[in-house]
Amino acid sequence: MRVSRLRIIFPVGLFLALFLDGSLSNVFAAHLFKYPYSSVLHLVLLWIIFAVFLDDRNDLSIGIWSAFAGLVFDWYYTGILGVYMVALPLVVYLSRQIKPWLDLNFLTMLMVYIINLTIVEAFVYIWYLIGKVMTSNLADFAVYTLGPTIAVNLALFVILYYPVRQLYLKVS
């Protein structure tokens, strides 16, 4: 009974995060995409990382759900298939690999989140670069995209960490 509630809350929250990413990007476009900086919201990734580290029983099929969310992201937002669809499950896999080695607390999760943000952004950057979707050099990417993106998402992480943790403690 208690398990099944989280099984519903997780996918609903995942898609809520997915669409909020786009809506908030539009509303705050003037601030988020102020030249030359562009900070990308990653609420989906945040929700996935929370689920991987806060769900102790590992009974959510996070990998499959994140692949599905990535597919919807690719279809609905970018129109270019196979990028987020692979990037998100990749992050889930890597996080699961390092989870047993970590002493879980606020700071270690913050570090893991920074690493995962970097992996996803770098993966997307490299893939789009090879696929000639856009042109940009590595220095510009690191300074103007990756930096602001990490800053904005860390702020969101700090704000959302305790509420989401409470949610997981209460429900599971």
């Binding site: 809506s23 539009n26 562009s38 990308v40 937002y77 997307v124 789009y128 979707v133 856009m134 940009s136």
Partner: peptide
């Protein structure tokens, strides 16, 4: 209506 904007730094797209 504008529904959303692609949350990506590489594409300036709206839905």
């Amino acid at each position: 209506n504008v529904l959303t904007r692609t949350p990506s730094s590489w594409m300036n797209q709206l839905v």
